[in-house]
Amino acid sequence: MALPQAIKAGLPCMNLLRMTAVPILEQLYLEERLLRSSAENWCIINHGTSLPTIVMGISGRPSELVELKPVLRDQIPVIRRFSGGGTVIIDNGTLFVSLICNKNAIPGLQPYPHPIMSWTGQLYGQVLCEFGDFHLRENDYAFNSHKFGGNAQSIIKDRWIHHTSFLWDYDARNMEYLKLPSRAPKYRSARSHVEFLCRMKDYVPSRTSFIEGTIKSLGGHFSIRPFDLDELGSLSSSLSGSTKLLTRQELEEACTSQCVAVR
């Protein structure tokens, strides 16, 4: 009996889950569940999310990162995710790609933030270098000196996740909900959000070409197995995780504390 190609090639399996417009909160619930309770490798791709939403890192403070008055006025959801990294606002123009891997899945890759970031930079570089002057700049993906991809990571005992929000397109008005970060990469050079960011659609021919190129690039390291969302059941689970949708009360209290501090 012939052995499966993945076994003959000696490549680990990676489950590929493709989704469209799944709310980012549900996606994060799913990712945390798979990181902590699965023993398999996963690539999760989501085309956009249903509503504009702000997502902060696990240690993020709304008073320092978010323009709270307009966020409260316009009822913009704010999520604190389970991974580190910075703050983003995402919408239906955002592409999400998340890689969840066992620490031994990629030979020679040390399970620490910088080596993982370097590896993913090379992975996406294989896809994007033909479309523009692609760089991994500090912890961002950029064309020339303009960021289009923000990254976050979480590393646990035997596994890690690297997830990225790619700005295929964005509404410049939404960027007004975010404060300028107090800690920013040097290459930002104090530029505003709109001056600092770029849109992937201005460089890459189509979303499909980027996604298919990414899957092909992953195929050099894994045997890709398409996976159906229905096989996972409900995206949310009883697993007690760190991802949290902040309540209006929490945002109002942060806004009140901020106003008192300013006085």
Score class of each variant (00 low, 15 high):
1 M>D: 13
1 M>A: 11
1 M>L: 15
6 A>Y: 09
6 A>V: 14
8 K>M: 14
8 K>R: 02
20 T>S: 03
23 P>T: 12
26 E>Y: 12
27 Q>C: 00
27 Q>K: 15
28 L>V: 09
29 Y>P: 01
30 L>C: 05
31 E>D: 01
34 L>K: 01
36 R>M: 10
45 I>M: 12
45 I>K: 01
47 H>L: 12
49 T>H: 03
51 L>A: 09
52 P>Q: 00
57 G>V: 02
57 G>C: 10
60 G>I: 03
64 E>L: 07
71 V>G: 06
73 R>G: 15
73 R>W: 04
74 D>N: 01
75 Q>V: 07
76 I>A: 01
77 P>F: 15
80 R>S: 04
83 S>H: 09
87 T>H: 07
87 T>P: 01
88 V>C: 05
91 D>H: 01
93 G>R: 01
94 T>A: 02
94 T>Y: 06
96 F>E: 00
97 V>T: 01
98 S>P: 00
103 K>V: 06
105 A>P: 04
109 L>Y: 13
109 L>D: 13
110 Q>P: 05
120 T>D: 14
120 T>R: 06
124 Y>T: 07
127 V>K: 06
127 V>S: 10
129 C>I: 11
129 C>E: 13
130 E>G: 06
131 F>E: 05
132 G>E: 14
132 G>Y: 04
135 H>F: 13
136 L>K: 05
136 L>E: 09
136 L>A: 10
141 Y>D: 03
142 A>P: 03
143 F>H: 15
143 F>D: 12
145 S>P: 06
145 S>H: 02
148 F>A: 00
148 F>W: 07
152 A>N: 00
152 A>V: 02
156 I>K: 10
159 R>W: 05
162 H>Y: 13
165 S>F: 12
168 W>G: 02
169 D>S: 01
169 D>W: 01
170 Y>K: 02
170 Y>D: 08
173 R>M: 14
173 R>L: 15
174 N>C: 11
175 M>S: 07
175 M>F: 09
175 M>I: 10
180 L>N: 04
183 R>A: 00
188 R>L: 10
193 H>S: 08
194 V>N: 10
197 L>P: 13
197 L>V: 13
198 C>E: 11
198 C>F: 10
199 R>M: 11
200 M>R: 07
202 D>G: 13
204 V>C: 03
206 S>I: 01
208 T>R: 13
212 E>L: 06
215 I>V: 11
216 K>D: 12
221 H>D: 07
222 F>H: 02
223 S>T: 00
224 I>Q: 07
225 R>A: 08
228 D>V: 11
229 L>K: 03
231 E>C: 12
232 L>I: 11
236 S>F: 12
237 S>M: 11
239 L>F: 15
239 L>K: 14
241 G>L: 03
241 G>H: 00
246 L>D: 05
249 Q>N: 12
249 Q>R: 04
250 E>K: 04
251 L>G: 02
252 E>T: 15
252 E>L: 04
253 E>T: 12
257 S>V: 15
259 C>E: 02
259 C>W: 14
261 A>I: 11
